[in-house]
Amino acid sequence: MTNTLLILILLTNLRLLISSRIHACVRWVAAQGILLGLLAVVGRQADITLLGILFALFTAAIKGWVFPWLIFRAIRESEIRREMEPYVGYNLSLAIGLAALGVSFWLGRRLPLPGLPGPLFVPVAFFSMFAGLFLIVSRKQAVTQALGYLVMENGIYLFGVVAVRDEPLLVELGVLLDLLVAVFVMGITMFHIQRDVESLDANQLTQLRD
């Protein structure tokens, strides 16, 4: 079950790389968030506490509902285009994604963390971070940058589940709150940039350099 969830997370990452619509992308990120929430419950079946379940639900709610809602709202209000506008084509993105996947598995073998709930945790965590990073770097729109940060954060969350055995969810909570603020700020800035520059192409931010 844990493995299946991890593989689904892995596949959502690949799907994000070839998605050409921003709305679809947001939905996939939301799905990934819900999968992560499920994972937090399923992944530690043995020592699950009520608090743990609550945190997991909170994670799922934030990642799967609040963030997407915020982003959707930002998209609607700033009236941006619905294409992803990639620098790197979708096919090439997929190829790069597969290469990153290979690297992640290689890193996973090189980094055997003690007390792993499963062999896939580390590779999938790395892969989520790579995929998020790649989305940030290779797509023009500011919204996708926010999405990329979210995917990267999901990777960090996975690490949190793996690496910090005692209270991963507390650590995670901190990160999550940071992110909440980040998304808020992003939403507001996007709105303002839109008003000032009349476009949300991250390229155009260069206009603001002085």
Partner: peptide, 16 residues
């Protein structure tokens, strides 16, 4: 893209 996707799924299957 669909076919590359199929190849990607197969590669992930192999990897697992």
């Amino acid at each position: 893209q669909l076919l590359l996707g199929a190849a990607a799924l197969a590669l992930v299957g192999f990897l697992l």
